[in-house]
Design a protein around this nucleic acid. Structure first.
Lengths: 209, 209
DNA sequence: CTGCATCCGGGCCGATACTG
DNA sequence: CAGTATCGGCCCGGATGCAG
């Protein structure tokens, strides 16, 4: 992309990450190192040459590097994009109220709303294991040591199991849907939904970065 | 722009603000309502039809609205873009170490680094008035009631006056340049630079949103 | 003068085919 | 598996036109 040619941090930042698809590539890499084919799989709709172009650009700018196995991973500076990405996702949360329609979905993308909803470290947050069955593959949300993280695959002995379409799952995780609304959205639950509320941050609490 | 077609908050957000120039238009509007011609002036390099296109798109999506005088302004939702914009600017701060070269610059763009450096409300922050003479027009940084804001135009009786090129000014505001380095960067100061340090946030302090 | 619309050349995007 | 090559089409950028 052509540079904006402006001496402004926003413009110079967008010179690096403003290209189409670039931040979505970063979203994939925020989950950990990825092979080229994994990126293609996680970015339905991208053309292969564009993915190669973007990765070259990100590597040139020092956002992405190759590891020993040739996988792509974020540099320390690239990891810093978690905050802009979360900020955009938080701002765009109202857009998720519209149903997926024919939009593509990968269950790994749930890591983003989970990071936004269960942000930061909270010593008072209880441990909990949630298995989520939606999209292409099951996934586990784990609350441990006051932090919430997402790992691929099913859980061994989950406290809560959520099954259903992605919009319903996100509504339940956000706390926007109660048990009855969740059912009407096609979400079936095994376990007590109220455990989720204890994972969310109380409003006005201190943010840890 | 074509939609990414993904059920993901980041992708859906970028469907709205991911187009080229869009976030720079938002940057301008974060300073307050703007006429079309003011936007053109603050966005050197943009084509007039693109500005019109982007404004239409932002209006359609509910990010921007017209006020009684026909000026463009952010909606309540659009104001929420301050956080993503600040997050990108914070991430891109290292890119500002490279000198402006032939990049364009507007002194009003200093509002962004000022918002990032002197973020939030801090009751312990002393009142202070700084006049900055750089770029196209002078501008005043005011610390009042624990908050720091930028207003156009010179100050009546500033505690500190900074004159010089934009990269030097930003270095001084960040605290990256001491008095001697500032001079070597072409910045002349009237007043005590140490007053600036009292405006910056102590690391690890609580963030208020 | 403000606030756009139109036109057009060039470059980027998107889909497919192909290769080491 | 991990990209490169190619090509049509759309979007971007710059100049110009024009209505209120």
């Amino acid at each position: 992309m052509k540079s904006y040619g402006q001496y402004c941090a926003l413009a110079r930042g967008l010179d690096v990450i403003g290209d189409r698809w670039t931040l979505l590539i970063v979203r994939e890499l925020l989950a950990g190192p990825c092979r080229y084919s994994e990126l293609l799989e996680g970015l339905p709709g991208i053309a292969t040459n564009l993915l190669a172009d973007r990765l070259r650009g990100l590597e040139k700018h020092g956002v992405v590097a190759r590891d020993a196995q040739g996988r792509y991973q974020l540099t320390a500076w690239g990891q810093g994009l978690a905050e802009p990405v979360h900020a955009i996702a938080r701002w765009a949360a109202p857009l998720m109220a519209a149903p997926p329609g024919d939009n593509a979905f990968r269950s790994s993308w749930l890591a983003l709303p989970v990071a936004v909803i269960f942000d930061g470290t909270d010593p008072g947050r209880p441990p909990l294991t949630i298995e989520v069955r939606t999209g292409d593959t099951p996934l586990t949300i784990e609350s441990r040591h006051g932090q919430v993280r997402v790992v691929p695959g099913p859980a061994m002995s989950p406290d809560l199991v959520l099954t259903g379409p992605p919009d319903g799952i996100i509504g339940v995780l956000m706390g926007a849907l109660d048990q009855a609304s969740a059912v009407s959205r096609g979400v079936t639950t095994h376990g007590d939904l109220r455990q989720l509320a204890r994972l969310r941050k109380p409003p006005g609490s201190v943010r840890h970065r």
